[in-house]
């Protein structure tokens, strides 16, 4: 405990905790909608696209890779989350296609145009998060705070519409709600959150941040509002616990957080049987 207190004196530890909590909060809120719309693998798909975006940014020698990564990921999110209406390519097949293609081309580009001496290190760190969360600059922390605040504000304001569009999109549309617009909003917010979450757990584990808190909450609660709140709480608590565990020991950050989330899910399953 004392050790943790000492560690909290370090600014990069405080930054990590702030950003970790905000990312976990946004991911778990959105996770409820994505899981219910059967888009659980969107986290994986979009994070691979973001990986591809990072590769492109490196090749083009863009100083701030967010300028490339964010737009590319947002566009992919919009395309993927709307293919539900496309009869030729169903949702899950589209996600799988874009996901592996982005990963393959990203790695190919990085190999053909290497921008750093430690290529495998860079790739590994992007895929697994490595210690990226502990090496954030103050500017990155601010960016994260601003984006997270925007996401939260929009979620709260459009909560009822997001619920209507998640439960029954055609009904909402028949009543005059512009379902397309809210689907677009959900897609954009998802993309932003994925790009931020890559810093926390890396590309490969992004899905976990989205799906585990939502699934755990659904085991225990019966109204959409309670599921949403529980998902947010569980997401934040497991991210904090995982982060602190990793900081105090030698465990990798991303895997520690996901391991805690799986544990929490297991506990919720057991509680469900006994309540």
């Amino acid at each position: 405990m004392e050790r943790l207190f000492t560690y909290l004196q370090y600014p990069f530890v405080r930054y990590a905790l702030i950003v970790g909590v905000l990312i976990a909060l946004c991911s778990s809120l959105l996770g409820v909608t994505l899981v219910l719309k059967r888009f659980s693998f969107i986290g994986d798909g979009l994070s691979h696209v973001a990986f591809g975006g990072i590769a492109i940014a490196g090749v083009l020698n863009v100083s701030n890779d967010m300028l490339v990564v964010l737009p590319v990921t947002v566009i992919s999110a919009v395309l993927l989350l709307r293919t539900g209406q496309n009869k030729k390519i169903r949702g899950d097949a589209a996600i799988a296609m874009i996901s592996v293609a982005a990963l393959a081309f990203g790695y190919l580009l990085m190999n053909m145009f290497p921008t750093s001496s430690n290529l495998s290190g860079d790739v590994c760190s992007t895929l697994f998060g490595s210690t990226s969360i502990l090496t954030l600059s103050i500017r990155e922390v601010w960016l994260c705070i601003v984006l997270a605040a925007a996401v939260l504000a929009m979620y709260v304001l459009y909560y009822n519409r997001i619920f209507a569009v998640t439960f029954d999109e055609s009904f909402a549309q028949a009543c005059g709600t512009k379902a397309d617009r809210y689907n677009l909003l959900i897609a954009v917010i998802t993309a932003v959150i994925i790009v931020l979450a890559m810093n926390l757990v890396g590309s490969l584990l992004c899905s976990a941040l989205i799906i585990f808190p939502a699934l755990s909450a659904m085991r225990l609660y019966h109204s959409f509002r309670n599921v949403t709140i529980a998902s947010a709480v569980l997401g934040v608590v497991s991210a904090l616990a995982g982060l602190i565990l990793a900081i105090l020991t030698d465990l990798p950050v991303g895997s520690a957080i996901v391991a805690v989330q799986v544990l929490v899910f297991g506990i919720c399953c057991i509680l469900e049987k006994h309540i």
Partner: peptide, 24 residues
Amino acid sequence: PQQTVVQRDFPASVREIVLSGCLN
């Protein structure tokens, strides 16, 4: 409308669903 598979398993209370009809 006819119910979808997604809806049968949806974690929402009756009141929340009925209220969603008032959205417009």
